[in-house]
Simulated assay, not measured.
Amino acid sequence: MRKSLKILCLFCVLLLMCFSAFARGGKEEPAGKGLVFYLSPNQFDEFQTTASKLIREYVEGAGYELREMVAQSGHAEDVALQLSQLDDAITQNPVAIIIAACDATAVADSIERARGEGIPIIAFDRTITETEVDFTSVAGCKKIGILAGGEIARLLKEKHGEVKGMILDIMGDPGDMYTVLIEEGFQEVMADYPNVKISTKIAQGWEASNAANIADDWLIAYPDTDLIFSHAEHLAAAIVSILETQAYNAGDIIMVSTAGMPMGLDLVREG
């Protein structure tokens, strides 16, 4: 996944170079190429912390100044804060704004204003569909959901001899198309298995404590749950703590997550 993340970041920088060349009309560029903003949704998710490092590395390596703004309040993403940050970035007339949107719908009006003022917008990691952007660099999120669905079906068949059982499905914030598209792919696959009962819950703001509370309440009511599918590793880590508190042993409940970041790989190694 880290290799894919590097590729996504590199695409962003290559596009910045194209925007800059277009704006110069072929003239020789100055020593400093200009200011770029990166609007990050959070820094509690390993994917996002790694993305921030790589974007800074590539953007500054290409000769631009990078300023990062993080839309995080406490342990949750803050849509209102990101809107304020986006408006602030627009007033500084950067050569481009890279944004991983907390809420793809909420940012649409500000993105339209930025593009109206000639500021290119690059949607990174999270798709924005409510308005046009200049470039989108995202992972194949629906494909992630399809792959997860196929693996989950395999795991349930391995456990029961057929694809059946109960799944607790914990999404991230539905304002983020990353989790929405994963869910779309997952549900598309699981529609072929009528003997699987899926309960979908939402961890608002991608906050780990929300996922933990969901799992805690759910497992009290449904202790024989077969599998928990969380849409990010930091959610999975919080859920594992709940399983341990409720005296589940490793393997009692199958855990599936996305992204393949180090935190998730550590959980796999621990069983």
Rank of each mutant, 00 (worst) to 15 (best):
E29D: 14
A100I: 00
D78C: 12
Q82A: 10
K33V: 03
R24Y: 08
E132P: 00
V95K: 15
A51N: 05
L66K: 02
K27E: 13
T91P: 10
M17I: 15
S84K: 14
F44E: 08
G116K: 02
T131N: 07
L54S: 06
S73L: 15
D134I: 02
P94V: 13
E57I: 06
L86S: 06
N42E: 13
I122P: 01
V133C: 05
A31G: 08
A23G: 11
K33W: 07
S52W: 02
A62Q: 02
V95D: 08
T105W: 00
V70T: 14
T129R: 10
Y64I: 04
S84H: 11
I119Y: 02
G32C: 15
K33E: 03
P120T: 00
T49C: 01
Q72T: 08
Y64R: 03
C102L: 09
Y64T: 03
A76R: 06
D78V: 12
A71W: 01
F124S: 01
E117T: 05
E57P: 12
A51K: 02
Q72L: 03
G34V: 10
N42Q: 08
F124Y: 11
V13R: 11
R56H: 10
G32P: 10
D78E: 07
A100F: 00
L16I: 06
A80D: 07
S110A: 05
N93P: 00
A51Y: 03
I99Y: 10
G26R: 12
V95L: 13
E132C: 01
F135P: 00
L35Q: 15
